[in-house]
């Protein structure tokens, strides 16, 4: 649940302010990254630069090629929706951004995912502490 909606883990254990603060911050950071670098900063594994599905994909090789996706996907379904748009734009031959804006957009989206991972772990820990 905390992965589906950033901050929802805190909401489930009754920490509304913390949940809203974390959720809004993570989603704002992720959307800011997409705004800065364009939605094509999300490079979906299994698809090439033109949005065509690759055949005979090796998972480890794909993760090595697109390591930032590991951080980005931790943001939750927002990344899946962004990835879908990214593939759609690739089909339309809309180019990716380059240089610093691409790097900064990628960094924003990946950091948002990693912050969400910290929030997921912390909310799970706090929930378990309350039960135990």
């Amino acid at each position: 649940m905390a992965w589906l909606l950033p901050g929802a883990g805190y909401l489930l254990i009754g920490q509304r302010t913390r949940g809203l603060t974390v959720g809004i911050s993570v989603l704002t950071l992720f959307l800011a990254g997409l705004l800065i670098g364009g939605v094509r900063v999300i490079e979906v594994p299994g698809f090439d630069g033109t949005g065509q599905r690759q055949r005979d994909v090796r998972v480890i090789h794909e993760i090595q090629e697109k390591p930032w996706f590991v951080g980005q996907i931790l943001t939750g379904p927002a990344c899946l929706i962004g990835g879908w748009f990214s593939i759609d734009l690739a089909h339309q031959r809309i180019p990716r951004s380059h240089g610093r804006v691409n790097e900064i957009g990628t960094l924003y989206t990946a950091v948002a995912g990693m912050l969400n991972l910290m929030a997921i772990i912390d909310s799970a820990y706090r929930g378990a502490s309350r039960q135990g």
Binding site: L34, L35, I36, G37, V39, G99, R100, V101, I104, Y108
Partner: peptide, 20 residues
């Protein structure tokens, strides 16, 4: 087009450190 084309912040990229 927002989210399609990148922001034209080539000369101000260092300011993007602040929101991050």
């Amino acid at each position: 087009a927002p989210f399609v084309a990148p922001l034209p912040v080539w000369n101000y990229w260092y300011l993007l450190l602040l929101p991050l």
